[in-house]
């Protein structure tokens, strides 16, 4: 299957017969395969070249999160209208058993793209939570009925071309249905290990004293990950009580101690966050991504105290790993909104 060839994604089926065809698929598999499902995982995207990559993503994710995956390729801009569907299964060995997740792929062209809510509603595995991963730009007009059904909305703010507008739409979606929908930004998930490693830099009592007196924060990030770096700064600001001083030439944060905390974001090729350097008085706290290895080296340098470089797990970069982490968390990201609030004017 070429990267743009949707026909090879599975067994073509009539949309009205999907459940029957899935039933047949499992019947033929007999007892050698067990269908499992804990969530409905819907992926919405508008880029035809992503069909293969998304199918592979589902295969990777299904090893840890058994699901009914619904892939929806929508091409609302095409002149021809129509809907097609395919089914397939992703199986893996768990002990002696083959555990399988099923995937239904839809292609909605032209006007039929508007049928998205009905396509989603009619093919959900009943009683299971609905996780929707929205890979396309958010639209300003919100289908409230669709969004109100979503238990967890996943997105990657690093991919957004207009972060402020998109965050605004996200906030609106998050407030529907009495705020039932959990918002999961993969860009935030991308930072989890980085935040853990940074927190670890300040566990030592001597380092902890320096934390409230940080003076500079320097972060190296890869091209396209400025929002990732900003979210990291936002997290520090919200946890440490810094207030943004939006100076036109060089904004900085004001710490509760009155210290001016200056920050620099530098674009460098490599992982999304490759280096974080913090200074406080005569101490330096450095987190450095080890090249070609998925580790951070954490070093604390204070005069008179011994350095103990430590290796810790670095941030996840693969989308499948990020989604696995997000689905495994199962709770709201309380600090995400605070981090976002702290850096909104900088986006």
């Amino acid at each position: 299957m070429s990267s743009t060839d949707i026909e090879g994604v599975g067994l073509p089926v009539e949309i009205g017969k999907i459940d029957r065809e899935l039933g047949k698929l499992w019947e033929e598999a007999g007892e050698s395969k067990t269908r499992a499902s804990l969530i409905n995982l819907v992926l919405y995207f508008e880029d035809r070249t992503q069909v293969q990559a998304n199918t592979q993503l589902i295969a990777d994710i299904a090893t840890e999160h058994a699901c009914r995956a619904i892939l929806i390729l929508a091409e609302p801009g095409t002149s021809e209208s129509g809907a097609k569907a395919w089914i397939n299964a992703h199986c893996h060995l768990a002990g002696k058993r083959q555990i399988c997740s099923e995937q239904i792929t839809f292609h909605l062209a032209g006007e039929t793209a508007k049928a998205l809510p009905s396509i989603v509603f009619s093919h959900l595995d009943s009683d299971l939570p609905l996780c929707l991963w929205w890979q396309a730009p958010f639209q300003r007009t919100i289908d409230e009925q669709l969004w109100a059904w979503v238990d967890r909305l996943v997105f990657d703010s690093a991919q957004w071309e207009e972060p402020p507008a998109s965050f605004e739409i996200i906030r609106k979606i998050g407030s529907l249905g009495e705020g039932r929908t959990v918002l999961g930004d993969l860009n935030w998930a991308r930072l989890l290990e980085t935040r853990i490693a940074i927190a670890g830099l300040f566990d030592h009592a001597v380092a902890l004293e320096k934390l409230s007196k940080l003076e500079t924060v320097a972060i190296d990030h890869s091209p396209g990950h400025r929002t990732t770096a900003l979210l990291l700064v936002g997290w520090l600001a919200s946890r440490l009580g810094w207030k943004l001083q939006p100076m036109l030439d060089k904004p900085f944060f004001l710490a509760p101690s009155g210290t001016h905390v200056r920050f620099d974001l530098t674009e460098k090729p490599g992982p999304s966050i490759s280096r974080c350097l913090f200074t406080s008085g005569d101490c330096e706290f450095l987190l450095k991504h080890c090249n070609e290895r998925n580790f951070f080296e954490a070093t604390v340098s204070c005069p008179g105290s011994q350095e103990h470089p430590r290796i810790t797990k670095a941030g996840r970069e693969k989308l499948a790993d990020l989604l696995i982490s997000e689905l495994g968390r199962g709770s709201r990201h309380g600090h995400y909104r605070h981090a976002l609030d702290a850096i909104l004017p900088l986006l």
Binding site: I196, A199, F202, D203, L208, R239, L240, H335
Partner: peptide
């Protein structure tokens, strides 16, 4: 008194102290 404020909310469970 001496808790590391950056530790809060990182994980789904309480992280042990050093």
């Amino acid at each position: 008194k001496h808790a590391n404020p950056l530790r809060g909310g990182l994980l789904n469970r309480a992280l042990p102290e050093p």
